[in-house]
Design a binder for these strands. Structure first.
Length: 199
DNA sequence: TAGTAGCC
DNA sequence: CACT
């Protein structure tokens, strides 16, 4: 089953509990090798989410701006893309290319992400695929410009959202995490994986 | 001063 | 609203 939220197709209950558990294990391995960090934004503030990446490119930011890098801030190459994430992309993205980046965002109960566009990628014909694991998150979607109407939906563990076509540049963000709404992650919180082509 | 992967 |  899927729903349309501001042009973004959200596949609900797309991943089995088994697949979610395996994906969590693959993410754990990545985080052990490439520790979570809290990027600084161009404004000088630190983001509330912690993040790391897998694949050829990882997303990061600092006072110099938002961008993709080939290495973790500690100097290592990013670990390989988690195999299940690649399977999911091939199932839902509808394009011939494979993703080059898997951004892993970790939200604790207080973490949020303001409305923003994903526009650090070269080819806007390539969709962005977002996978939710763990606690539920209030996801808000607007249009391609700031200030318009927005819609919200609670994303649950295992949901997969595809932001493509007309929705590729829609503003979106996370307003709230519902703590303890899932038992998938032993220590609670939410993991979001975002798969993208970068260059 | 305008804009904000913000903050309350 | 406060920060850059």
């Amino acid at each position: 089953m899927s729903v349309d939220v501001g042009g973004i197709v959200v596949h609900l209950e797309h991943l089995t509990a088994e697949k979610q558990a395996v994906l969590v294990e693959q993410v754990r391995r990545i985080v052990r090798a490439a520790p979570l960090f809290r990027p600084e934004m161009p404004s000088g503030r630190k983001m509330s989410v912690r993040m790391t990446s897998a694949g050829t490119f990882g997303w990061t930011s600092d006072r110099a701006g938002y961008r993709y890098e080939r290495q973790h801030p500690n100097g290592m190459d990013w670990p390989p893309m988690p195999p299940i994430a690649l399977d999911i992309w091939r199932d839902v993205a509808g394009v011939a290319r494979d993703p080059q980046s898997c951004l892993i965002n970790f939200y604790d109960g207080d973490a949020k992400m303001g409305l923003h566009q994903d526009r650090d990628e070269a080819d806007m014909e390539m969709p962005v695929v977002s996978i939710s694991l763990g606690d539920e998150a209030l996801f808000r979607v607007g249009g391609a410009k700031r200030g318009g109407k927005t819609q919200s939906i609670w994303l649950k563990s295992g949901d997969v959202a595809v932001m493509g076509g007309a929705a590729r540049l829609n503003y979106h963000g996370i307003d709230r995490i519902r703590a303890n709404s899932s038992t998938l992650l032993p220590n609670g919180g939410r993991i979001n994986l975002t798969l993208r082509c970068v260059d």
